[in-house]
Amino acid sequence: MRKLQWGMIGGGEGSQIGPAHRLGAGLDGLFEFTAGALDHRPEEGIGYGRSLGLGDRAYGSWQDMLAGEKAQDNPIDLVTVATPNSTHFEITKAFLEGGFHVLCEKPMTMTVEEGEEIVKIARTTGKICAVNYGYSGYSLVRHMKAMIARGDLGKIRLVNAEFAHGHHADAADAENPRVRWRYDPAQAGVSAQFADCGIHALHMASFVTGQDVTKLSADTVSCIDVRVLEDDAMVNFRMDGGAVGRLWTSSIAIGRQHGLGIQVFGEKGGLRWSQEHPNQLYYMPLGERLQIIERGEANLSPEADRTSRVTIGHAEGMPLAFANIYADLAEAIRARKENRSIDPAADLYPRAEDGLRSMAAVFAVAQSGKEDGLWCDARPPMFR
């Protein structure tokens, strides 16, 4: 079976996210890295791309890459956009309209209006537009989703999600350029910590429950006074299936490292999972003893089995979770090429619609935080 061809924009030398994408895309042998515009500096981008084996398909800009790939007899099947946030909309729009499937890093856009436009373009062109909420690729997160969908917990009552770390807690580091931009509205938009980390936790809540957020109330604060945007937020939300939600996100929680976790409580039981300990899912059926579900054990769901690669007891980390998103996309692209239905266990990659809902939530949190926790509609206008 011929590998699908994959390209990347951004993620150049020294990038934090670039290696994770290259590992994830190449892990299962489904994609071949064949094209890239890896740096906003043309010469550096071309040089680094060639060092990775891209040859004359190492481009100096995304515009050159778009034109070059459209002219190829065998162009890329998928492009990943891993550039600064403010460029996501322009690049994603151009490649969708150019006839390419796209995986965009989050946030998909900087405004709700841009998000709605991307959703419409993806629907009109028929091209896949996925958003990299990569933590939804973990095997036991998918098993959690499957357990909830088949009714193991009964009706879902409460979701508690967190994404809290302490890596921006030092006030003396507030003027560090690598930190400062995150809290600058001119560069980050209307939200800092919630837009950076909180939306991962919110997407996780929707992903595992199958419910979308309809309204929310937020308490946002800048614990370090010189920051304009929030470094801590507590968000209460309601979901369209009746679940109540609580979400805490922070960058000043000293002692917390990564801090992404989720708990779901239903009529018949509860589930708990943490990204720092991804091999265990804790399940408490009503009136019974606590059970620990191990990644890789027998008799899990097809969704979990499909996304587990190494034997039980060995850790699988973030690049493998990313690889599961890429495996989903490879199956979706091949299904379209072969005019067949996608494997249901693979039909789990986050869509443009998810990116749009996240951006609507970001603006709702910002509005609510300014208005002392006013309950705000968290839905984008096109979904109301």
Results as ranks from 00 to 15, higher is better:
153 L>F: 04
346 A>Y: 13
98 G>T: 14
346 A>D: 01
84 P>C: 06
317 G>C: 11
204 M>K: 01
110 M>C: 10
291 Q>Y: 14
21 H>V: 10
349 Y>F: 14
90 E>K: 14
208 V>C: 06
244 V>Q: 10
136 S>Q: 09
286 L>D: 13
216 L>A: 04
305 D>F: 09
197 C>S: 14
295 R>A: 15
138 Y>E: 01
43 E>Q: 15
377 D>F: 06
237 F>R: 00
300 L>D: 06
4 L>Q: 02
51 S>D: 04
89 F>G: 05
64 D>S: 12
360 A>R: 00
359 M>L: 11
198 G>W: 04
54 L>F: 06
62 W>S: 08
88 H>I: 15
61 S>Y: 11
215 K>S: 10
119 V>M: 06
246 R>C: 06
70 K>N: 10
41 R>A: 06
20 A>M: 14
7 G>Y: 08
138 Y>F: 15
122 A>D: 01
250 S>F: 03
365 V>A: 03
84 P>M: 11
37 A>V: 09
309 R>N: 08
118 I>T: 02
279 N>Y: 13
154 G>H: 07
354 D>S: 09
85 N>M: 12
169 A>R: 02
338 E>R: 07
92 T>D: 05
21 H>Q: 04
174 A>V: 13
252 I>L: 02
49 G>W: 06
336 R>C: 02
22 R>E: 08
274 S>F: 14
11 G>F: 08
375 W>C: 00
214 T>E: 13
285 P>R: 13
58 A>M: 09
330 A>D: 03
114 E>A: 09
130 A>Q: 03
379 R>S: 00
206 S>K: 01
154 G>T: 11
178 R>G: 09
374 L>H: 04
201 A>D: 04
165 H>T: 07
332 A>K: 02
239 M>D: 00
156 I>R: 00
300 L>I: 11
62 W>I: 11
364 A>H: 04
94 A>C: 10
251 S>Y: 02
17 I>G: 02
366 A>G: 00
